[in-house]
Design a protein around this nucleic acid. Structure first.
Length: 425
RNA sequence: GGAAGAGUGGCAGAGUGGUUGAAUGCGGCGGUCUCGAAAACCGUUAUCCCGAAUUUCGGGAUCGGGGGUUCGAAUCCCUCCUCUUCCGCCA
């Protein structure tokens, strides 16, 4: 959530920022509502001050045996007027809150301005030794491989739950579990994160805190009976760990890594990308979350991207880093890098990770603060998160890149101690 | 799911309608004492909002959340949430 004070002090900057993010320009309306709000507070506070004064006088009057009926009648009127003003105030504040909650975060100054994904910028690319975009043999895609090797069963997944609910079988299930364990261990042992295993159903407050609600509500599952949301990413529960808390400056940055299944309705996105793993309703993801000091959150973002890259390097999967332009940035993000892995069968890059700095946008919504050492004041932390990584897209690249001409899968070296086998097929 | 009880400042814990933002203790911070430290003593110790003013001052709000009664609510009423204990059920 943007700060009204900041909008007030930098209206033009915010207007341009919203424009860059393809968002509605609400600046003038926000400022107007804020002005109305302050005027009402001024009047209301004045009357309350009067009421407080009189209230403290009443015991004295009673003690002195004075008649209070006139004062009571007057104060009744004052009370009614206060109630009226506060009612109006609440309406204005709700309207303002609603508007701000629906207003996206602004992009950082280092983010390229652009309308859509076409204007994203490739930052770097990494390819394993001996890698070639041309294949010596006819490659199978992950669906064909999954079927042939009996490790993925999309048809039965559909029978059990519906389309987009993958079923892993045999060595496929083992490989998936190996991936998750490998990634968790890697971040724990080499990158200094501590592990979280979060609840996968969260309440509305948590969804609001990280910004999935209200803007993305249509894409979220909801268990109406209990008012709980299956999480679209463990960013939600993990970031909300410190909702309404005050952290110590010296404990920053706090770095968590956690595995969870993720649930997304993907409403309205059925199409050619919906086959196999490319777009699913349930997938597994290892997520990194950081609570950072505002002054070095951008360094933390860079190192988080490197943390995710290390996983891909260790597994020998070709990838590239994309810096998202302003128009392609998500609602809450100020800056975001996507990591895309190569799919030889699709002959294209697939988004396997997204690492974002939200600055204090989420912290403001979720009220996550830290106390400064020098002046003892409270300030909002910066929150970041990144997939490290999503197994579904990763599995596509893994299977397709590691297939042999005979249609078998070689298990990447680093995963072998987790799988207990070296080859599938 | 049923019954009973409870939710107050960083923590513990008073307060049941009128200078209560809130006693007291612990903790934290500053000081006196000391070569230094401990002890002791003195002082200080929340957050948010509004308004003025170049270190600050004034006002308002907040005692789990929301609503109500009242001139006035931490205190009374309603409702929701959470926790504890007992019963039931259960991986």
């Amino acid at each position: 959530m943007l700060d009204v004070k900041f909008i007030k002090e930098n209206p033009d900057l915010v207007k341009q920022g919203l424009l860059n993010k393809n968002a509605a320009n609400v600046v003038d309306e926000v400022l107007k509502l804020d002005e109305e709000r302050r005027a009402l507070i001024l009047k209301s506070d004045e009357l309350k001050a009067k009421r407080n004064q009189v209230s403290s006088d009443i015991p004295k009057m009673k003690k002195a045996g004075q008649d209070t009926t006139v004062v009571f009648a007057e104060m009744k009127r004052v009370g009614d007027e206060i109630a009226l003003l506060d009612n109006n105030l609440r309406k204005i504040e709700e309207e303002l809150e609603e508007m701000l909650r629906n207003t996206p975060n602004l992009a950082h100054s280092t983010v390229p301005v652009g309308k859509s994904a076409d204007e994203n910028v490739e930052v770097r690319q990494w390819l394993p030794d001996g890698f070639s975009f041309k294949n010596d043999f006819e490659v199978l895609d992950h669906i064909e491989l999954g079927k042939k090797l009996q490790i993925l069963d999309f048809e039965r997944g559909t029978k059990i739950s519906g389309s987009g609910f993958p079923l892993y079988t045999g060595k496929g299930a083992t490989l998936e579990r190996a991936l998750i364990n490998f990634m968790l261990d890697f971040h724990l042992n080499h990158h200094g994160y501590s592990e979280i295993l979060p609840p996968v159903l969260v309440n509305k407050e948590s969804m609001k805190g990280t910004g999935q609600i209200p803007k993305m509500e249509e894409d979220m599952y909801l268990i109406e009976k209990d008012g709980l949301y299956p999480i679209p990413t463990s960013e939600v529960p993990i970031t909300n760990i410190h909702r309404d808390e005050v952290l110590l400056e010296k404990e920053l940055p706090i770095k968590y890594v956690g595995y969870s299944p993720c649930f997304r309705r993907e409403a309205g996105s059925y199409g050619k990308e919906s086959k196999g793993f490319l777009r699913v309703h349930q997938f597994n993801k290892v997520e990194m979350v950081k609570f950072s000091h505002p002054k070095n959150s951008y360094d933390e973002l860079e190192s988080m991207v490197v943390d995710a890259e290390d996983i891909l390097k260790a597994m020998g999967i070709p990838y590239r880093i994309i810096l998202l332009c302003t128009g392609d940035l998500s609602f809450s993000a100020a800056k975001c890098y996507d990591i895309e892995t190569w799919s030889p069968a699709e002959n294209k890059w697939l988004e396997a990770s997204s690492c974002s700095n939200f600055e204090n946008f989420q912290a403001r919504r979720a009220n996550i603060r830290y106390r400064r050492e020098d002046d003892k004041k409270l300030d909002f932390v910066h929150t970041l998160n990144g997939s490290g990584l999503a197994t579904s897209r990763l599995m596509v690249s893994l299977l397709e890149n590691y297939q042999t001409p005979e249609g078998k899968i070689v298990v990447p070296k680093v995963l072998q101690k987790y799988t207990g086998f070296e080859i599938i097929g």
